[in-house]
Write a protein that binds this DNA or RNA. Structure first.
Ligand SMILES: [Mn+2]
Ligand SMILES: [Mn+2]
Ligand SMILES: [Mn+2]
Ligand SMILES: [Mn+2]
Lengths: 218, 218
DNA sequence: TTTTATTTTTAGGGATGGCTAAAATTTGGT
DNA sequence: ACCAAATTTTAGCCATCCCTAAAAATAAAA
């Protein structure tokens, strides 16, 4: 059984590892957790003793299989609760993250197993992120960023990279959500901006927007 | 915002106060919380500074209005989550308490408000205990213990006093649950035991059982 | 009314999870 | 290769919430 703080560290390191490939630096963890590097060193040394990560002084840390599984399980709980909040309690997709941050630490295998069933065994959370299975495995999906598409390519929005309220509310305003079809009508090489078609609307988006939307093309 | 430990103390003191009427002793709190009296003194002094209870050295503590409201709100959350676990996730009524002990500490007014609506604004939890409203008020209900009934009186089971697994499983075996009609066929003055009728079955129960079943007679 | 037993508080300390400041190590520029 | 900058660790400290042992106050008995 891991403490709330330990679970949050494992989750943060898991996310950093999957983004940056390779050992995770102390500073990167500190920034992700909004804490000080010295606090990270303390915790990382404790977690190394518990064999959930390997740590080499000054060289960074990486999760062991045990650590990965534990982290994936916390992420599984987070995302299942987000589905619950949106599907059953009618929360908006930009309101659920902070509540899920708390709910992800409730300890009960049976609870999560029943919640999963109650929700119809969902594969993705409200932001399009995949929900790990109970063994910590995530189905690989072939998705790309909208910014990687070329002129005249099209696809379906399957997720968002960042999911802060401002961004999600922008998407709402433009009627973009999970499942929305998007076509690239034009792309500017200079700044990466695009003109896209969503339903009957055509409009301009910046590269920053395009870099935060996951698209599935098939 | 109160910590997990603070909320648990407030809840325990609230329950002790409503049972024993009058100031609550340090030892009583320690026993209820399964902790040491010295730890209770520490926490009670801290809570007194926060104005959620009044504390006089060697004389005991009692909750202020603020403290009562805070405690009732934790109890409200506990009981709403218990309803969720039983009604939506199909847990059995003897399995939900420990999980609700964790869920009751999730901080979000909006979450509880929506959960309440999702559950159809229930008045009672799966054990027949009343759910306080968002202001901390509990509707007074006129219920009595089965042990207070006389021969030939009858009523409906509306709740259980203790709700540990062993007792709840005993009730299941005897097909007694919330809403079950019970008639007192006979009562022994010597030991308070009874013979009761439940559906078509007639059987003996001890005084201990009769003292833990709430009955409504009308 | 003493004496004894019980209850309650205080003193001192441990584990967890933070912090700042200073020291050690690594990285990068010249 | 050397110095400067950035990163990382260590040392020492703080807050929370728990503990044991000892002291103080109250309650019960003699
Ligand atoms: Mn989230
Ligand atoms: Mn999400
Ligand atoms: Mn309960
Ligand atoms: Mn209950």
């Amino acid at each position: 059984m891991y403490s709330l703080a330990e679970e949050n560290y494992l989750k943060a390191i898991y996310h950093l590892e999957s983004k940056n490939k390779g050992a995770v630096s102390t500073n990167a963890i500190a920034e992700a957790m909004d804490t000080k590097p010295s606090s990270v060193t303390d915790m990382v040394q404790k977690l190394a003793e518990k064999k959930v990560l390997s740590y080499i002084k000054y060289k960074g840390t990486s999760l062991t299989e045990k650590g990965k599984k534990t982290a994936a399980n916390v992420i599984r709980k987070h995302r299942l609760w987000e589905v619950f909040l949106v599907e059953k309690l009618n929360f908006h997709w930009d309101e659920v993250h902070d509540i899920a941050e708390q709910l992800e630490h409730i300890h009960s295998e049976e609870l999560i197993s029943r919640l999963d069933k109650f929700l119809g065994f969902p594969d993705f959370d409200p932001h399009g992120d995949p929900i790990p299975d109970k063994h910590g495995n995530i189905k690989p999906t072939e998705k790309k960023l909208l910014s990687e598409l070329h002129k005249n390519q099209k696809g379906v929005c399957v997720g968002v990279k960042e999911s802060n309220s401002e961004f999600l509310q922008y998407l709402d305003k433009k009627h973009i959500t999970i499942g929305t079809k998007i076509s690239v009508l034009g792309k500017e090489f200079f700044d990466g901006s695009m003109v896209i078609q969503v339903g009957r609307d055509q409009f301009f988006i910046s590269q920053k927007i395009a870099e935060n939307l996951y698209i599935q093309t098939n």
